[in-house]
Design a protein around this nucleic acid. Structure first.
Length: 451
DNA sequence: GTAGGGTTAG
């Protein structure tokens, strides 16, 4: 009797068929980076690593997880990436805060691939993000040379670059020579003028605009706020509603700033109420603007209430709440909230957080904690002190010296020698002379106390 | 797959 033929060992079995469609399905449902790596491994095992469409999905997804190195790896595995894929990779690096790498890739692209009209906005944005105006100008030249300059997206992005680099005349020239301006071109022009101290010209542009949408209205409202003209911001807000343009979160943030500038709690409450009634979600920006408004208009309770109900909080949200507590004299609460923030995943304090923390310590005279946080800022978080930190520290040290001076004075009443006392007095005076800014700082906080 | 407006300190 013939022996049954042995079945091949499992590792020699042909792999089950893994079509690209199946890989797309997996990628569509993929929600984290380890999962993505598993799917990618499968893709490689089934010789699909050179599939352009799959690679695009992998690049988009890994960069959405912030994994640009992995995205680059996928990109490098392609034999000859299409222009689309080059663009995608440049964009991925740029949006993940790696504009220099994006620009290097663009330089490489010039000798390996054709460009298209989509390439330019990505590259110009990378120029802006890395403050490379010079390269931006060269890209401008290249756009003209290659015939892509007629694209309105490209022109708008270029205008924006010039305005944000302070080159108003260059931006204006692009705008003036544009044959097919659209609403974005007009709004870019408007805001370009505003951010270069030219509110009057911006008003003219706003009047001349053929059509206005919520972005253009909001840009003009924000312009008034930026120039500390809150009354005009409110006027324009009303006109916008008469014009049947619905405000959005961006608009409301500006209106909250306008309320803060007016110091009007009732106006601020009205904006909050408006947001509530119209179903606006409390996103990080709107929530933080509300906290700031309530705190500066005198209602710490409302600020805290907003903070507590917010579903997601940005670093700015935490900073705003910490500063508010400190400013309202609740230094201990400010420090304890800072501790909570440090425990929160993905939220790392920045220089502004420490301005809040140190001024909370300074206001409550908490010298020991102040020094501890100051050192923590420098040595744990690697943050270089800025003037505001130094001002707080000087205030704290003066308090320490003052306490020391008084105690030394008391000691000196019991002893014959008062050498150390005179030294302390002298050094306090010297500090006062050198740092007159302290008194200004003090006035700032007295203003809060009064309010 | 591309462009414009928003938050925290000072």
């Amino acid at each position: 009797m013939a022996a049954p033929s042995p079945s091949p060992p499992p590792n020699l079995l042909p792999p089950p068929l893994f079509r690209p469609e199946k890989a797309y399905f997996f990628l569509r449902t993929c929600s984290n980076f380890p999962q993505l790596k598993q799917i990618h491994a499968k893709i490689i095992r089934h010789n699909l690593a050179n599939d352009q469409l799959l690679a695009r999905h992998l690049i988009t997804l890994s960069s959405s997880f912030g994994e640009t190195r992995y995205a680059s790896l996928v990109f490098r595995q392609l034999h000859s990436p299409s222009t689309f894929t080059w663009n995608l990779m440049i964009r991925s690096l740029s949006v993940n805060n790696k504009p220099r790498e994006a620009l290097l890739l663009f330089v490489l692209m010039l000798s390996h691939s054709n460009l298209d009209k989509f390439t330019f906005p990505f590259v110009i944005k990378a120029c802006l993000a890395s403050s490379s105006l010079r390269l931006g100008t060269q890209v401008h030249g290249l756009a003209i040379k290659t015939g892509f300059f007629t694209d309105v997206f490209l022109q708008n992005t270029l205008m924006d670059l010039y305005f944000k680099c302070g080159k108003v005349d260059c931006g204006r020239k692009v705008f003036d020579e544009m044959p097919g301006r659209n609403i974005v071109s007009w709004t870019t022009m408007l805001y370009g003028l505003v951010s270069n101290e030219r509110l009057d010209d911006a008003e003219i542009v706003f009047r001349q605009m053929p059509t206005r949408n919520v972005v253009s209205w909001t840009a003009m409202i924000a312009a008034y706020v930026k120039n500390r003209r809150p009354d005009e911001a409110f006027q324009l807000f009303r006109r916008m509603q008469v014009d049947d343009v619905e405000p959005n979160e961006f608009t409301l943030v500006s209106m909250l700033q306008a309320s803060t500038q007016l110091g009007s709690l009732s106006m601020g409450r009205w904006v909050h109420d408006y947001a509530h009634k119209n179903g606006f979600s409390l996103d990080c920006f709107l929530g933080t603007a509300l906290i700031d408004m309530y705190s500066k208009c005198g209602s710490l309770e409302d600020a805290r209430r907003v903070f507590d109900v917010m579903e997601s909080r940005s670093l700015a949200t935490w900073n705003s709440m910490i500063t508010s507590l400190g400013v309202h004299g609740l230094g201990d609460e400010a420090l304890s909230l800072f501790g909570e923030m440090e425990g929160e995943e993905g939220v790392e304090p920045d220089a502004i957080s420490f301005v809040g923390v140190l001024s909370a310590c300074a206001n409550t005279g908490n010298v020991k904690e102040g020094l501890r946080y100051f050192l923590r800022m420098i040595y744990v978080y690697g943050i270089t002190p800025i003037e505001e930190h130094n001002t707080c520290m000087i205030q704290l040290l003066e308090q320490a010296l003052e306490v020391n001076r008084v105690s030394n004075y008391v000691d000196s009443m019991d002893s014959d020698s008062n050498i150390s006392t005179s030294f302390e007095v002298e050094s306090t005076d010297r500090v006062n002379e050198r740092h007159e800014s302290w008194s200004q700082h003090h006035i700032t906080f007295s203003k809060w106390d009064a309010g």
